[in-house]
Design a protein around this nucleic acid. Structure first.
Lengths: 109, 109
DNA sequence: CATCCCCGTAAGCCATCGCTTACCGTTAGC
DNA sequence: GCTAACGGTAAGCGATGGCTTACGGGGATG
Protein backbone atom coordinates (compact mmCIF):
# COMPACT_ATOMS: atom_id res chain seq x y z
CA UNK A 1 0.00 0.00 0.00
CA UNK A 2 2.72 2.38 -1.00
CA UNK A 3 0.21 4.39 -2.95
CA UNK A 4 -1.03 5.76 0.35
CA UNK A 5 2.42 7.16 1.06
CA UNK A 6 2.71 8.63 -2.42
CA UNK A 7 -0.64 10.38 -1.97
CA UNK A 8 0.30 11.85 1.37
CA UNK A 9 3.69 12.99 0.12
CA UNK A 10 2.44 14.60 -3.07
CA UNK A 11 -0.47 16.31 -1.36
CA UNK A 12 1.65 19.21 -0.16
CA UNK A 13 1.92 21.98 -2.82
CA UNK A 14 5.46 23.02 -1.96
CA UNK A 15 6.70 19.45 -1.97
CA UNK A 16 4.94 18.80 -5.24
CA UNK A 17 6.64 21.86 -6.70
CA UNK A 18 10.00 20.44 -5.67
CA UNK A 19 9.04 17.19 -7.34
CA UNK A 20 7.93 18.98 -10.50
CA UNK A 21 11.19 20.86 -10.75
CA UNK A 22 13.02 17.57 -10.75
CA UNK A 23 10.88 16.53 -13.65
CA UNK A 24 12.92 18.59 -16.10
CA UNK A 25 16.02 16.69 -15.08
CA UNK A 26 18.30 15.96 -12.11
CA UNK A 27 19.28 18.98 -10.04
CA UNK A 28 21.23 19.93 -6.93
CA UNK A 29 19.47 21.25 -3.86
CA UNK A 30 20.51 24.86 -4.39
CA UNK A 31 19.26 24.79 -7.95
CA UNK A 32 15.89 23.49 -6.80
CA UNK A 33 15.54 25.98 -3.99
CA UNK A 34 16.37 28.80 -6.41
CA UNK A 35 13.34 31.12 -6.67
CA UNK A 36 11.25 29.09 -4.28
CA UNK A 37 9.05 30.87 -1.75
CA UNK A 38 10.57 28.80 1.06
CA UNK A 39 14.05 28.49 2.51
CA UNK A 40 16.66 25.96 1.41
CA UNK A 41 16.38 23.82 4.55
CA UNK A 42 12.68 23.51 3.85
CA UNK A 43 13.52 22.14 0.42
CA UNK A 44 15.97 19.71 1.99
CA UNK A 45 13.25 18.45 4.30
CA UNK A 46 10.87 17.96 1.40
CA UNK A 47 13.55 16.07 -0.50
CA UNK A 48 14.07 13.76 2.44
CA UNK A 49 10.35 12.97 2.55
CA UNK A 50 10.27 12.41 -1.20
CA UNK A 51 13.28 10.13 -0.98
CA UNK A 52 11.85 8.09 1.90
CA UNK A 53 8.70 7.64 -0.16
CA UNK A 54 10.76 6.31 -3.05
CA UNK A 55 9.67 9.12 -5.35
CA UNK A 56 13.15 10.53 -5.73
CA UNK A 57 16.70 9.25 -5.66
CA UNK A 58 19.90 10.90 -4.54
CA UNK A 59 23.44 10.79 -5.82
CA UNK A 60 26.52 12.55 -4.51
CA UNK A 61 28.61 14.58 -6.89
CA UNK A 62 31.43 16.20 -4.99
CA UNK A 63 29.99 18.40 -2.33
CA UNK A 64 26.56 18.50 -3.83
CA UNK A 65 23.66 16.05 -3.84
CA UNK A 66 21.91 15.51 -7.11
CA UNK A 67 18.28 14.48 -6.92
CA UNK A 68 16.22 12.89 -9.68
CA UNK A 69 12.73 11.50 -10.17
CA UNK A 70 11.98 7.80 -9.65
CA UNK A 71 9.02 6.97 -11.88
CA UNK A 72 8.63 3.58 -10.23
CA UNK A 73 7.65 5.37 -7.05
CA UNK A 74 4.49 6.50 -8.81
CA UNK A 75 3.61 3.10 -10.24
CA UNK A 76 1.44 1.86 -7.38
CA UNK A 77 -0.52 5.06 -7.19
CA UNK A 78 -1.05 4.92 -10.91
CA UNK A 79 -2.34 1.37 -10.74
CA UNK A 80 -4.66 2.23 -7.91
CA UNK A 81 -6.14 5.03 -9.98
CA UNK A 82 -6.41 2.80 -13.04
CA UNK A 83 -8.36 0.28 -11.01
CA UNK A 84 -11.24 2.72 -10.98
CA UNK A 85 -11.75 2.29 -14.68
CA UNK A 86 -13.25 -0.68 -16.42
CA UNK A 87 -13.71 -2.88 -13.39
CA UNK A 88 -16.77 -3.81 -11.38
CA UNK A 89 -17.44 -0.20 -10.55
CA UNK A 90 -19.59 0.41 -13.62
CA UNK A 91 -21.57 -2.75 -13.08
CA UNK A 92 -22.39 -1.86 -9.52
CA UNK A 93 -23.26 1.66 -10.46
CA UNK A 94 -25.60 0.60 -13.21
CA UNK A 95 -27.24 -1.96 -11.02
CA UNK A 96 -27.74 0.58 -8.29
CA UNK A 97 -29.27 3.07 -10.68
CA UNK A 98 -31.54 0.42 -12.09
CA UNK A 99 -32.92 -0.51 -8.68
CA UNK A 100 -33.24 3.17 -7.94
CA UNK A 101 -35.31 3.73 -11.09
CA UNK A 102 -37.41 0.68 -10.26
CA UNK A 103 -38.20 2.21 -6.93
CA UNK A 104 -38.96 5.54 -8.55
CA UNK A 105 -41.58 3.98 -10.77
CA UNK A 106 -43.87 3.62 -7.78
CA UNK A 107 -43.81 7.37 -7.23
CA UNK A 108 -43.85 9.09 -10.61
CA UNK A 109 -42.72 12.70 -10.58
CA UNK B 1 -5.24 22.07 -11.55
CA UNK B 2 -7.95 20.00 -9.99
CA UNK B 3 -5.50 17.17 -9.57
CA UNK B 4 -3.99 19.11 -6.68
CA UNK B 5 -7.33 19.07 -4.90
CA UNK B 6 -7.80 15.37 -5.58
CA UNK B 7 -4.37 14.64 -4.11
CA UNK B 8 -5.03 16.65 -0.97
CA UNK B 9 -8.45 15.11 -0.48
CA UNK B 10 -7.36 11.51 -0.98
CA UNK B 11 -4.29 11.89 1.20
CA UNK B 12 -6.25 11.36 4.41
CA UNK B 13 -6.59 7.64 5.26
CA UNK B 14 -10.04 7.89 6.83
CA UNK B 15 -11.38 9.92 3.93
CA UNK B 16 -9.87 7.49 1.48
CA UNK B 17 -11.55 4.64 3.33
CA UNK B 18 -14.88 6.41 2.92
CA UNK B 19 -14.13 6.77 -0.76
CA UNK B 20 -13.18 3.12 -1.08
CA UNK B 21 -16.39 2.00 0.57
CA UNK B 22 -18.32 3.88 -2.05
CA UNK B 23 -16.42 1.98 -4.66
CA UNK B 24 -18.53 -1.14 -4.15
CA UNK B 25 -21.62 0.87 -4.98
CA UNK B 26 -23.72 3.84 -3.81
CA UNK B 27 -24.46 3.93 -0.10
CA UNK B 28 -26.19 6.05 2.52
CA UNK B 29 -24.19 7.83 5.20
CA UNK B 30 -25.14 5.44 7.99
CA UNK B 31 -24.13 2.46 5.90
CA UNK B 32 -20.74 4.01 5.23
CA UNK B 33 -20.12 4.96 8.83
CA UNK B 34 -21.03 1.41 9.90
CA UNK B 35 -17.99 -0.20 11.51
CA UNK B 36 -15.79 2.83 10.99
CA UNK B 37 -13.37 3.88 13.73
CA UNK B 38 -14.76 7.42 13.63
CA UNK B 39 -18.14 8.94 14.37
CA UNK B 40 -20.88 9.53 11.84
CA UNK B 41 -20.46 13.33 11.77
CA UNK B 42 -16.84 12.75 10.89
CA UNK B 43 -17.95 10.69 7.91
CA UNK B 44 -20.36 13.45 6.93
CA UNK B 45 -17.52 15.94 6.97
CA UNK B 46 -15.36 13.72 4.81
CA UNK B 47 -18.22 13.27 2.37
CA UNK B 48 -18.60 17.02 2.09
CA UNK B 49 -14.93 17.40 1.27
CA UNK B 50 -15.11 14.59 -1.27
CA UNK B 51 -18.18 16.15 -2.84
CA UNK B 52 -16.61 19.62 -3.05
CA UNK B 53 -13.63 18.03 -4.77
CA UNK B 54 -15.92 16.43 -7.33
CA UNK B 55 -14.91 12.93 -6.33
CA UNK B 56 -18.35 11.97 -5.13
CA UNK B 57 -21.93 12.87 -5.94
CA UNK B 58 -24.98 13.00 -3.74
CA UNK B 59 -28.60 12.13 -4.31
CA UNK B 60 -31.54 12.38 -1.93
CA UNK B 61 -33.72 9.35 -1.43
CA UNK B 62 -36.33 10.13 1.18
CA UNK B 63 -34.66 11.11 4.38
CA UNK B 64 -31.32 9.65 3.41
CA UNK B 65 -28.51 10.88 1.18
CA UNK B 66 -27.02 8.38 -1.19
CA UNK B 67 -23.42 8.98 -2.19
CA UNK B 68 -21.61 7.49 -5.14
CA UNK B 69 -18.21 7.73 -6.81
CA UNK B 70 -17.54 10.18 -9.65
CA UNK B 71 -14.78 8.65 -11.76
CA UNK B 72 -14.39 11.88 -13.68
CA UNK B 73 -13.14 13.51 -10.51
CA UNK B 74 -10.08 11.30 -10.76
CA UNK B 75 -9.41 11.96 -14.43
CA UNK B 76 -7.11 14.94 -14.03
CA UNK B 77 -5.02 13.25 -11.39
CA UNK B 78 -4.75 10.21 -13.60
CA UNK B 79 -3.57 12.27 -16.55
CA UNK B 80 -1.05 14.06 -14.43
CA UNK B 81 0.40 10.74 -13.35
CA UNK B 82 0.39 9.44 -16.89
CA UNK B 83 2.38 12.45 -18.01
CA UNK B 84 5.34 11.02 -16.14
CA UNK B 85 5.59 8.16 -18.59
CA UNK B 86 6.89 8.30 -22.09
CA UNK B 87 7.46 12.02 -22.30
CA UNK B 88 10.58 14.13 -22.15
CA UNK B 89 11.48 12.79 -18.75
CA UNK B 90 13.51 9.88 -20.08
CA UNK B 91 15.34 12.06 -22.60
CA UNK B 92 16.37 14.55 -19.95
CA UNK B 93 17.41 11.83 -17.59
CA UNK B 94 19.58 10.11 -20.18
CA UNK B 95 21.14 13.35 -21.24
CA UNK B 96 21.91 14.28 -17.66
CA UNK B 97 23.53 10.92 -17.01
CA UNK B 98 25.59 11.24 -20.14
CA UNK B 99 27.00 14.61 -19.13
CA UNK B 100 27.58 13.17 -15.70
CA UNK B 101 29.66 10.33 -17.13
CA UNK B 102 31.57 12.74 -19.33
CA UNK B 103 32.49 14.72 -16.28
CA UNK B 104 33.53 11.61 -14.45
CA UNK B 105 36.07 10.74 -17.10
CA UNK B 106 38.31 13.53 -15.89
CA UNK B 107 38.47 12.00 -12.42
CA UNK B 108 38.73 8.22 -12.71
CA UNK B 109 37.92 6.23 -9.58
C1' DC C 1 45.73 24.88 7.22
C1' DA C 2 42.17 28.38 6.41
C1' DT C 3 38.24 29.57 4.15
C1' DC C 4 34.17 29.11 1.60
C1' DC C 5 30.33 26.78 -0.22
C1' DC C 6 27.29 22.77 -0.13
C1' DC C 7 23.55 20.77 2.45
C1' DG C 8 21.55 17.88 6.21
C1' DT C 9 19.63 18.18 11.02
C1' DA C 10 17.73 20.15 15.55
C1' DA C 11 14.63 22.95 18.02
C1' DG C 12 10.78 25.53 18.26
C1' DC C 13 6.67 28.05 16.50
C1' DC C 14 2.27 28.36 14.42
C1' DA C 15 -1.49 27.13 11.29
C1' DT C 16 -4.10 23.58 9.54
C1' DC C 17 -7.08 19.82 9.98
C1' DG C 18 -9.50 15.81 11.63
C1' DC C 19 -12.28 14.35 15.51
C1' DT C 20 -15.90 14.70 19.15
C1' DT C 21 -20.01 16.38 21.32
C1' DA C 22 -24.01 18.95 20.88
C1' DC C 23 -27.64 20.80 18.34
C1' DC C 24 -31.10 21.44 14.60
C1' DG C 25 -33.81 20.78 10.33
C1' DT C 26 -36.23 17.29 7.62
C1' DT C 27 -38.85 13.21 6.42
C1' DA C 28 -41.56 8.93 7.54
C1' DG C 29 -44.82 6.37 10.43
C1' DC C 30 -48.26 5.98 14.02
C1' DG D 1 -49.32 16.51 15.47
C1' DC D 2 -45.72 13.35 17.95
C1' DT D 3 -42.05 10.81 17.72
C1' DA D 4 -38.15 8.66 15.87
C1' DA D 5 -34.52 7.95 12.40
C1' DC D 6 -31.31 10.23 9.17
C1' DG D 7 -27.73 13.34 8.57
C1' DG D 8 -25.72 18.13 8.02
C1' DT D 9 -23.44 21.95 10.80
C1' DA D 10 -21.13 24.60 14.81
C1' DA D 11 -17.82 24.95 18.33
C1' DG D 12 -13.88 23.58 20.41
C1' DC D 13 -9.82 20.74 21.19
C1' DG D 14 -5.52 18.28 20.25
C1' DA D 15 -2.21 16.54 17.15
C1' DT D 16 0.18 16.68 13.02
C1' DG D 17 3.21 18.88 9.92
C1' DG D 18 5.54 22.53 7.36
C1' DC D 19 8.35 26.59 8.12
C1' DT D 20 12.23 29.35 10.09
C1' DT D 21 16.59 30.17 12.34
C1' DA D 22 20.70 28.25 13.99
C1' DC D 23 24.21 25.04 13.82
C1' DG D 24 27.60 21.49 12.24
C1' DG D 25 30.12 18.50 9.16
C1' DG D 26 32.38 17.35 4.82
C1' DG D 27 34.52 18.50 0.46
C1' DA D 28 36.85 21.92 -2.71
C1' DT D 29 40.26 25.79 -3.37
C1' DG D 30 43.99 28.97 -2.31
Amino acid sequence: MAYATALAVLADPTRREVFERLRAGPRAVNAIAQGMPVSRPAVSQHLKVLKDAGLVEERSEGVRRIYSVRREGLAELRHWLDSFWGDALDAFKLEAERSYSAKKKKEPK
